[in-house]
Amino acid sequence: MLALILPALVILVAFQIVPILIGANASFRSWSLFNPQKTFVGLANYRRILADPLFYGTVLPNTFLFMLASVSGGLLAGLGLATLINRRFRGQRLVRTAILLPLMVPPVVAAIMITWMFNDQFGIANVILEALGLEPVAWLVSRWTSLAIVIGTDIWLWTPWFTLLILAALQTLPVEPHEAARMDGAGPWQVFRNITLPLLRPVLMVCITIRTIDAFRVFDIVWTITKGGPARSTEVFSIYAYKQAFVYLNFDLGAAASMIGAGIIMVVGGVLYKVLSYVVEVSR
């Protein structure tokens, strides 16, 4: 049985576990990027992060908001799309491929394009608003419009991911229960609610948990679109850690912030997984 995981384990140890341990080590030391003294300071770095009002007052609320909105948005859109296209219709392949398009653009480039589309002078967003007779908006100057753009982009980016995986799961489902239910005269919604959804739960559960963790750690699109601004009001936890480590060059504080964030999401993800497992059990 060990043979099943041995190759994976070796690579994992070398290229993930060891670097993570080095990073974790830095969080207990005085370690600036430009002058790594590496003197042991205990929990001092953790204390400084936890005492930072920006961290608990802005960064964590932003992160949770982002996580909730992005995961539920992507999940609902993906579930809807997957069920809609999981049948034969004309142009099926075209639609399926079109849905996957966002996955084919590097997130960084996509985020740069989105920023340009929401530019207050040149962007298409304001052109549309003005065509509708509305006032143009300076999108990236306020916290809430900036966050909305970032969340929207993330949903856009991840909807195809949900769609693809849910579609694959739908295709592995057995046909018999569906047919039996239809014979019994159940409508499409009832079939979906009572047959499809329970059968999809194992895959949904994994998708939701993984996406929750990843959304909590989101970095590149937020960094590209807002850099955490205006005035640090849209910073999420990875941006905060990144800024500490690579902008302020406090690798120690950045590592400590990463560890704190990892701790939080571990608990949140664990609880979520347990809850979802429970739901699956109950619904059986």
Binding site: S32, F34, N35, V141, S142, G229, P230, A231, R232, S233, K243, V247, Y248, L249, N250
Partner: peptide, 20 residues
């Protein structure tokens, strides 16, 4: 000075906050 990157980033962030 070595802390200049953090220093000026903090400065700009507060100026942006003030101006908005």
């Amino acid at each position: 000075f070595a802390r200049w990157p953090e220093f000026f980033a903090t400065g700009i962030d507060h100026m942006v906050k003030a101006v908005t």
